[in-house]
């Protein structure tokens, strides 16, 4: 009974739907919230869905992490693909850099205007 859940296509489906729900949560937050801070954090949640999907879709049942240990003694076919994990490591660092820069812009904006509500921003002129 439980073996039918421990199959690669089933797990890929679960990971896909979970990543899609996380993406939907992030996008809905970014579109519906009015606070600038919450918008950037919602975009960060949407990015996390990408990491989950990319890593999860390259997982297969019965394969190990691409690291030689006492149990797995040589590199070969019994390991998952190391390239997506390396790419996602790069992506996470870039996501942190972009999030930090955008949040520092939010802090500076709040210091200048005392406002974080995107409906009340009118520094570029009133809406005609």
């Amino acid at each position: 009974m439980l073996d039918s859940f421990n199959q690669t296509p089933f797990l890929h489906g679960v990971i896909t739907i979970g990543a899609f729900l996380l993406l939907a949560i992030g996008l809905i937050g970014a579109m519906s919230k009015k606070n600038l801070f919450k918008i950037f954090l919602s975009l960060s949640i949407a990015e996390a869905s990408l990491f989950l999907y990319f890593i999860g879709m390259h997982f297969e049942v019965g394969k190990d992490a691409p690291i030689v240990t006492e149990k797995v003694t040589e590199f070969g076919v019994n390991m998952v693909d190391p390239v997506p994990q390396a790419m996602i490591l790069t992506t996470i660092v870039i996501a942190i850099a972009v999030l930090a820069l955008s949040l520092s812009f939010v802090v500076n904006y709040f210091k200048l205007t005392g406002n974080l509500d995107i409906d009340k921003m009118n520094e570029l002129g009133e809406e005609s």
Binding site: F75, G76, P82
Partner: peptide, 17 residues
């Protein structure tokens, strides 16, 4: 993965990538 052991001798393939 096939050329990792002969080119880098690093036990962690993600690190060598």
């Amino acid at each position: 993965l096939a050329i990792n052991q002969t080119t880098t001798q690093s036990a962690n393939a993600v690190t060598s990538v």
